[in-house]
Write a protein that binds this DNA or RNA. Structure first.
Lengths: 144, 144
DNA sequence: CACGAATTACTTGTATACAAATCATCTTGA
DNA sequence: TCAAGATGATTTGTATACAAGTAATTCGTG
């Protein structure tokens, strides 16, 4: 069993790949991708946010955010509005369609979570998340 | 500290992002990306492999492999040769340049591993890898 | 007040990632 | 043997991801 000698990089990539695949299939019928869901969730928590604020929360490049907002807007989930106080900024708001999907989409992602993490008990998951957090977030110059 | 209530999907994505960034910066001066390194490593183990075999080992789509091989070939690390026995196949071989880089690149990736995983002891890493493995690989129809 | 610095969103270019379709080739079964 | 299906690599189209650069706007300092 030298299975766990596999490089962490590879294992991380494949674990994410799997989670992405399950998420994608759960969300597909709604026309939303996993990353788009992550952005929507921020808006369900607090509607009307600046692009740079969303980028910060999602630890993403502003170029990436632009593309994701483009597609969500094109599909009618959100809309951009100019900030009247600072015309450099654009505020992102949910549309009615975007608001109405919160419950269904969150349910689907709960299903995903159960499906992917069902092999582990609470303690294992906590420890696992702690390591992920240290690797990916707390060691960075980025926000928490 | 409700930090670890963060969705596993997000934590995984950010941990991989971090590992990718460190790997990329270590490899950048050699003109190789992290994914390209993973493919090269398979060839250092066994030179002259079929595209589909590499795709299998790396758990990647054949379309993705084509692009990676394209770029590695374009940069002179590998070359494609027709399989004389079955002209559908193409064999991928290291060039001298590709062979000569094994030691330097592996050293760099060892550095990356130390940098990213230095906060954890052997036991923690083993347990962490076990969870990653179960999520990403053993639960799949894909090979081990 | 004016001009340079900073900020935000966006654009461009490159690299994964994968689904779906295509092309060439091989294999198999009638 | 020959048509039907399988197989492997590639192409095309879409979606992240990020570096680097740009345009518009605002801020800060003299």
């Amino acid at each position: 069993m030298e299975k766990f000698d596999i490089c962490v990089h590879f294992l991380l990539a494949k674990a994410l790949q799997r989670v992405n695949q399950v998420s994608k299939s759960k969300l597909a019928s709604y026309g939303v991708t996993p990353v788009q869901f992550a952005l929507l969730r921020r808006l369900w928590e607090k509607d009307g946010q600046f692009g740079y604020a969303l980028a910060e929360q999602l630890l993403m490049d502003s170029a990436t955010i632009t593309g994701i907002i483009d597609r969500l807007e094109h599909n009618g989930f959100i809309e951009r509005r100019m900030d009247p106080n600072d015309r450099r900024n654009k505020l992102v708001f949910l549309t009615e369609k975007g608001k109405s999907m919160e419950v269904s989409l969150c349910e689907k992602m709960d299903e995903m979570n159960k499906e992917v993490m069902s092999d582990f008990d609470v303690e294992e998951i906590q420890q696992f998340k702690k390591v992920l957090f240290k690797i990916g977030i707390s060691n960075t110059n980025m926000g928490v």
